[in-house]
Design a protein around this nucleic acid. Structure first.
Lengths: 342, 342
DNA sequence: TTGTAAGCGTTATCAG
DNA sequence: CTGATAACGCTTACAA
């Protein structure tokens, strides 16, 4: 076989660059990975060779040699809930800013624990250095603990079982904002339509709602179950409409609030004159509901950023690029709440 | 240094498994990657060793050796548009079913072409074997063509410049469904509120809307520009409200329709009595608008599945797991459309 | 059916 | 500041 021409068919590698620049592969590696101890002139020559050849590091080879993949795993639930995409956008940004890459594993809604484990395994196999749990996984089982022990993980919300965990979004603050707004308006009590009980937020908000009422000496009325969907909100609305003394409702998502208000409207109960409604999320459509929704805004993108940053910080044991975002919820008052009728 | 104990600190590798099972690493590789030519008894022994050691293939090493990463890249735009998450869920599912992994790169909304290139590079560097463009990238430039030439890519929508490309969702069919519905109801013409001109769908739907009108001998009225947001829909609604002869509107997204109907309502024009509205998407809230939206459903998850499957098929040159999903749009008639007043 | 040998392209370590 | 050399853990030949 004749000696191969330098610029052959194969994609250029370090050796090619080194040869062209007249240095060793090690120097190429140093230049490409931005280390400082290279003479500027040498670095320039290497970069020129890199450009000429169109060289780029081979991630797999670099991982194998260095033991680092710079991959972040993300487990999400397959829903079209508005929050999911905003969350991942935030995560992706924080990752990219720190030169990490995000690999996603989706699990079906209401999946069994096995499905989460399987997703986690997929991510680990792929080389994820850390995993972000965008899902309500239970962590109190052997299989999951085994995995989170060897691969650092963060969850977006704060697990109820671990009050000390660094917290990204305070579900208690959300519920408190909503309930106190209603109470301060003069309502005697506040009814609550829950989210899907599968999710941690649901139980946390519910507990907070109860707590705030009790602090004010009010006995919480019966819970009205929901599952995040507008349909479940509609059903809850029919329930509420049948309770004449209900004048204020805290609904766990904007989407459910749309359904709820429709049911109320159909039953001839006016919002906010007969019933005040406050929900959670502040999706883009919230101000286009009729009436416009009073809601507690969740800064999803910031939450995603915060989760990723927290994980990366843990991974590197040092500071990261970018400020830690503000993830405080905020009450947005619009037209769906008012003082109760005399 | 004393000889190391077999089960030492390092994560177990093929050598460890081979030693424990009393076979060569090659046999371990064969068993683990599911090749058939291994005696069942041997395979069993190997699997036992794998389980005992908790061994899993090192993806980077496997990639380096085989030259395959089984990574699919996905470029998405950082928006919380409902479609994005549904799309990626579909992609992720199809990928997982074919043992591929999805890596996401997000670019800002309205990003420059450079941002797309940069995202593409990130994905390539990561080892993506193919890239799904969930974004309206222009492909008519050198830099992009260079990349799509070496890394197979699919886009979710059909580029207007390439009518022969296998098509995932037919924007013409969507517009036709909407416009003909309105015309068949007896409206003399149909006004159109566009999406963000940055997106291909926008121009495609707009062209289709024009075409259908012209086919029926109707001169298209002036375009009303939008940008997907409910706010832009609201502005469009004010425009429409000021045009007494406008009785039918085709709005390019449900979210804009919410804004539009709110503006119409405020202007005292009733939907559907004065103005009929049909939009596109069929988001979960569409039936909870007031009135409930007549809309053209887009099966986003199926679209994502289809895009991924198409790419994987191309990559493997063979058939893939799972039927090719049906991505036909469908008209959902609800309460926002009616015959025009006499 | 199983094993041996030779890389894959990079980074770490240690010399110079 | 730069270079030689040895891993990293796996798969693809090829041989037995």
């Amino acid at each position: 076989m004749p000696p191969r021409h330098p610029s052959d068919d194969h994609t250029p590698n370090q050796v090619d660059v080194a040869r062209l620049a007249g240095v060793s592969t090690q120097t190429v590696s140093r230049v490409v990975s931005g280390q400082q101890n290279v003479r500027p002139e040498t670095a320039r020559r290497v970069m020129a060779a890199v450009d000429e050849l169109g060289y780029r590091v081979h991630a797999a080879a670099a991982s194998l040699a260095s033991g680092r993949t710079r991959i972040l795993g993300l487990i999400v639930v397959s829903t079209d809930r508005y929050s999911t995409s905003a969350l991942s956008v935030g995560i992706e940004h924080a990752a990219a800013a720190n030169r990490y890459t995000v690999t996603t594993a989706a699990v079906p809604d209401h999946a069994s624990n096995d499905a989460f484990i399987e997703a986690f395994d997929r991510l680990e196999r792929q080389g994820a250095e850390g995993v972000i749990l965008g899902v309500p996984v239970a962590l109190d089982n052997k299989a999951m603990q085994l995995r989170t022990a060897r691969t650092p993980s963060t969850r977006v919300e704060r697990p109820s079982t671990d009050a000390d965990a660094p917290l990204i979004v305070d579900q208690y603050a959300i519920a408190r904002l909503a309930v106190e707004h209603l109470l301060d308006l003069g309502h005697r009590t506040v009814w609550h339509v829950t989210g899907d009980p599968f999710w941690l937020e649901t139980t946390q908000r519910q507990a907070a709602w109860e707590q705030v009422l009790i602090e004010r000496g009010i006995t919480p009325p019966p819970l009205i179950p929901g599952d995040w969907t507008p349909e479940s909100g509609y059903r809850a609305g029919r329930t509420i409409a049948a309770i004449p003394e209900a004048t204020a409702v805290f609904v766990s998502s904007d989407e459910m609030a749309f359904g709820l208000m429709r049911a109320l409207h159909e039953a001839g109960r006016s919002v906010p004159d007969d019933v005040s409604v406050v929900s959670v999320d502040d999706i883009a459509l919230a101000s286009y509901a009729s009436p416009a929704l009073t809601t507690v805004r969740q800064p999803f993108e910031e939450m995603g950023r915060a989760a990723a940053l927290r994980l990366i910080t843990h991974l590197e044991g040092t500071e990261t690029e970018g400020e830690l975002p503000d993830t405080h919820p905020e009450l947005i008052v619009r037209a769906s709440t008012a003082a109760p009728r005399k």
